[in-house]
Amino acid sequence: MYLLLFCQQFLNGLQFGVMLFLMASGLTLIFGIMDLINLAHGSLFMVGAYLCATVFQQTGSFMLGLLVALPGAALVGIVVEVFVLRTLYARDHLDQVLATFGLILFFNELTKIIWGPRALFLDVPEALSGTIEIIPGAPYPTFRLAIIVVGIIVAIFLYFLITRTRLGMLIRASATNREMVGALGVNVNLLYTLVFGLGALLAGLAGAMAGPLFAVEVGMGEDILILTFVVIVIGGIGSIRGALVGAILVGLIDTLGRAFLPALFKLFLDPATADGVGASLDSMAIYILMALVLAWKPRGLLPAHE
């Protein structure tokens, strides 16, 4: 019984981790390679969800929504990079934080002007609705399983992109020494735009995949953004492998903590207090993890370049 429960919660944690990975992989590339702190990454998540929901409402097809949301989010990302962020590379991090925070406000208000203040409806595609019993006796939502599969595909794709292609080589090279790559005649501006577009595309993918689960509403990317930053700090800034490990770790600890901490405290506290203490401690759990990781390995678990 307990094993069954644990397996289900483990799967939930894995799924949440994969969702975080989709966000974190883009953010860590941007942060690691371009040395840019992009708080507006959550806005690109929101753009993905809104575009997908809009197309879904017009056509009734989630896949079509995805086909529009991915290039849509990438395009928005590229426009933002070219017109706003390019001027910020030379500035220090505080300026970048202020400017990208401004972008969050801008995107939130723009979304409200275009779509109104109400949350939008986005449903699970017909083929993926319902549940399957991959563990006997424990029906699991098919769509969540699909998210795990998509996450694994993206992880493999990124692995090949980074290790086996010329673009990946340039990305790795500029993560190590940007000036040298520029001096060797590589168009660093174009490379940055491509990396940012790729990050935006992944954020849009995460947003579109999250739409059927979460409320599609203004400001939906901000909660997940905070967790994403925790993930890339734990994993090591600029490292895709680190983002994967960090995301799975954070997803598992967050979910398992929520599921089992209150039960654990109930062993020696009265139920009402146990629920309160469990819930409070769980909110802290991932930050405690972050503090421990940083104390042990200040540059994260798998830093990009040592």
Partner: peptide, 17 residues
């Protein structure tokens, strides 16, 4: 009686409970 995080979006763990 379960208390969740304020602003929480993912309820997978609670649903299994």
């Amino acid at each position: 009686e379960v208390y969740t995080k304020l602003g929480q979006k993912d309820y997978a763990a609670e649903l299994v409970s």
